[in-house]
């Protein structure tokens, strides 16, 4: 199963058809896949996570059992623990320390679900996690990622809370790269982070689209910068454009 075969299959059969047809191969390759996913929530509704959990159950089980997802706040055991303001550095219990640890190693696939939060007045204080803004958190995680998947309309361009009817809201809740449908943001550039970003819009994207795209990334079928040509002007994979 090489890259071209996968892409051709997706463009002919669709994401769902591809997964159906290649399931045994994908599962086999997933078992030896080295890549890991760090999944961070910004301003979203967890609907994208729920959509992902509705994908093909065999592939999903393989991904979960193989520990492909090493950070996901809704699914994993750990929480953040601070005693008198000091982080308890127990990697088995402490999600914050755990994340720091993962970031040190780097090279993961960063999935961002939900919009970045800049408001109010560019402070980012509309969303604080462990005392820091989620914008800071995502930027920090992005710095050591190998590729970033902006999952769902929220992460791609701001999504529902970024509905362009209200200018405030668009300003306060941008996507990873786009603010609203067209305005390109340079938030990562501003922090000197040049990482490939793939947008998968859709509210939520279809389960099979999320699964197919994650599988391609986990199995290293698409790599950057070599494969930048596979993306369209909105940074969507041409064969999986989302909804």
């Amino acid at each position: 199963m090489d890259k071209q075969e996968c892409l051709d299959a997706i463009s002919i059969l669709g994401a769902g058809g591809f997964l159906e047809r290649y399931k045994p191969e994908i599962r086999k390759e997933l078992r030896s896949a080295e890549s890991k996913v760090v999944w961070i929530h910004g301003a979203g509704c967890s609907g994208c996570t729920m959509s992902f959990l509705s994908a093909d159950q065999e592939l999903l089980s393989t991904i979960l059992e193989r520990e492909c997802i090493i950070y996901h706040k809704t699914l994993l055991e750990q929480s953040g623990f601070f005693v008198d303001g000091v982080l308890m550095r127990d990697p088995e219990l402490d999600i914050e320390y755990y994340l720091e640890d993962i970031e040190k190693t780097g090279g993961y696939i960063l999935v961002v679900e939900g919009a970045l939060v800049e408001g109010p007045a560019n402070s980012g204080r509309y969303c604080l996690i462990a005392g820091k803004s989620v914008r800071e958190r995502i930027i920090k995680a992005a710095a050591r990622a190998k590729v970033i998947l902006a999952l769902g309309t929220c992460a791609s361009c701001g999504g529902v809370p970024g509905d362009r009817r209200s200018e405030n809201v668009v300003r306060d809740f941008p996507g990873v790269i786009f603010r609203g449908a067209v305005e390109r943001r340079i938030i990562l550039d501003e922090h000197g982070i040049r990482k490939p970003v793939i947008n998968l819009p859709g509210c939520p994207p279809k389960p099979e689209q999320i699964m197919a795209l994650l599988a391609l990334l986990l199995l290293d079928k698409i790599r950057f910068p070599e494969d930048s040509g596979l993306l369209d002007e909105y940074l969507r994979l041409k064969v999986i454009k989302g909804g």
Binding site: T74, L75, F81, I95
Partner: peptide
């Protein structure tokens, strides 16, 4: 003072 932040396995932040 013990702060639990973020609390995992709940929806949202």
């Amino acid at each position: 003072e013990i702060t639990l932040d973020p609390i995992s396995r709940v929806e949202g932040h």
